[in-house]
Design a protein around this nucleic acid. Structure first.
Lengths: 316, 316
DNA sequence: TCCGATTATTTCCATATGTGAATAATGTTA
DNA sequence: TAACATTATTCACATATGGAAATAATCGGA
């Protein structure tokens, strides 16, 4: 028995004073109304309505039950309605994971635009380069760069950035400027970036035309956080392999210098990933669309100049 | 979809943290739980649970829905429980119709005993000789004497009373004592009792052994209320045909005298009638049983001596 | 009192749902 | 990395429910 349908039918019969009219109002066949009322009475073991073919009278028990049933149905409709409303109107909290560099240099500076469009959404930003488990940590979506490790997630490509090589002037004054990737093995140090999961530092990729090298270089310091990585480079601790959009203001101020400018480390593809879901919430949908537009339009780094500046190392 | 079952399943999964455990707690097959959750998510167009075969996590939407759904289910269980409770423990109001003479001389004086047994029941007594429509007037049951007119009602026989003939001394002083039923046509008057529905006065039935007469006699006054009828007889307005148990104290006090004592008007069978109902409420059941016992045991009129006494007419 | 219009209910077949068995997926352990 | 135990889901058939048509019941009017 569908008790809710039965309660609705009963309420309508009480209000309409007739099984037939109630059936019409509910757009339900008359035998269905009959059966629902019978089922409800059987469930409650109480006669709710005294009826003949011409007349329907509510029993005292039925009248008492009606009052409370109507209140319950109102609560239920309200609950259903609030779920529908929150689907139709993007609102509520969204948990998003972003690598720190993309958060600090691209996403966060653009958020005023997002909130201008969707003032009812709250974002919980997880700022970490670590690859989080979306299910385990109740993360709605994550922005990821590079290779994707979880094939079960939906990955929507939103753009790409180039990795280039830079060093602080003080570093270059001490170690000299390399002319070729092989030179990096001659007394040079790099800033290491290690994958949080495997613990192994990433290789330095050098690509020029058809020529390419994958170098595993000695480092004085390594980190798994992209912003700390940049700070280490600025401190003159070694050569960095960093995404282009982050370094603009530091190149301008001279805090960083391009190293081996004809060589780059190839593009890093950016994705926004989320779990498959037949019922994708509207807030997740609008966020994903907005992020795709932000990074895809090239506008992601427009605000970088007005963004935070890390401390540069000694100019030497 | 049975939304209530779905909500219950959802609540159990949230609490148990597992589909299988929830199914066990609900004594429901596991595929049923799976389907119910799927149906609920489809209904709400919202993902409530992120799950794998090994893990179940509640979404933020799911958590919010859970709080409110549990409150609703509690209200519903309370409502269902209150109906069940009112069935198990006889309580609530009962509308009973009784002819006035039986109310005043038998039922009402015995009610202290009924309420000692069932203190939670309230009785609404309709005291009238009129044959009420149980359905139209929301009457739970009625006590009736004589022939039954409605074959659709359940009639439970509870006893019988004899109709005899009486007159006040003053009446007999004026008109003399009849020796035979035929004498009643010689200047006598009777108190007429008319059926409320047909408006026709009842005949006087006289039975002695194999001999019987059905007399339509002239009357000075007629009424459709059995207590008013008795009062008219006490006032010396004519000969009455009244049930035996009512007149005890008046015979004792001499306010009434037996007329044609070898003749009686045959027994009147008493029934308690009520509408057929698959779910007879417990209070109606206990009332019917109690009334049957009261009238069946012959104790119905035990209290009459201590009961109200109508004013007698002039003794003459 | 009888007839007819109206309305609740029943019947029987079509459709939807429930459930046992099988399958797919997950995540821990050796 | 492979094996295995556990658990959510799917599949196919059995059972329950929905609904059109037919029937039964009611009650007002002639």
């Amino acid at each position: 028995m569908d008790q809710i349908a039965a309660m609705r039918a009963f309420a309508r019969v009480v209000e309409a004073g007739s099984f037939s009219r109630a059936a019409d109002l509910l757009d339900t066949p008359k035998p269905t109304v009959t059966k629902l009322i019978q089922q409800l009475e059987a469930h409650l073991r109480t006669k709710l309505l005294n009826r003949s073919t011409r007349r329907v009278a509510v029993t005292p028990d039925g009248a008492a039950y009606y009052e409370r049933a109507v209140a319950l149905l109102t609560d239920l409709d309200e609950l259903d309605g609030s779920m529908a409303h929150s689907q139709a109107t993007p609102s509520g909290r969204l948990r998003v994971d972003v690598p720190s560099s993309l958060a600090l240099y691209a996403l966060i500076p653009a958020l005023p635009d997002f909130f201008a469009r969707h003032p009812d959404i709250q974002l919980d930003l997880g700022v970490t380069d670590r690859t989080v488990d979306l299910l385990a940590e109740n993360v709605d979506c994550a922005i990821r760069g590079g290779d994707l490790s979880d094939p079960t997630l939906i990955a929507r490509r939103i753009g790409e950035v180039r990795l280039m090589h830079y060093a602080a002037p003080a570093y270059l004054k001490r170690h000299g400027m390399p002319e070729h990737p092989r030179d990096l093995y001659q007394g040079h140090r790099v800033i290491g970036y290690f994958n949080a999961r495997t613990g192994r530092p990433a290789a330095f990729d050098m690509v020029r035309g058809e020529e390419s090298y994958e170098l595993h270089l000695p480092y004085a310091v390594a980190t798994n956080d992209s912003t700390a990585y940049l700070a280490a480079g600025l401190a003159g601790l070694g050569i960095t392999q960093t995404i282009e959009p982050m370094v603009g203001p530091y190149l301008e101020s001279g805090a960083l210098v391009r190293v081996l400018p004809e060589w780059h480390a190839g593009p890093i593809v950016l994705h926004v990933v989320y779990a498959p879901n037949r019922h994708l919430s509207s807030r997740l949908r609008v966020f994903v669309d907005w992020v795709a537009e932000l990074f895809g339009s090239g506008g992601a780094y427009r605000h970088a100049a007005a963004s935070l500046m890390l401390a540069a190392g000694p100019r030497g």
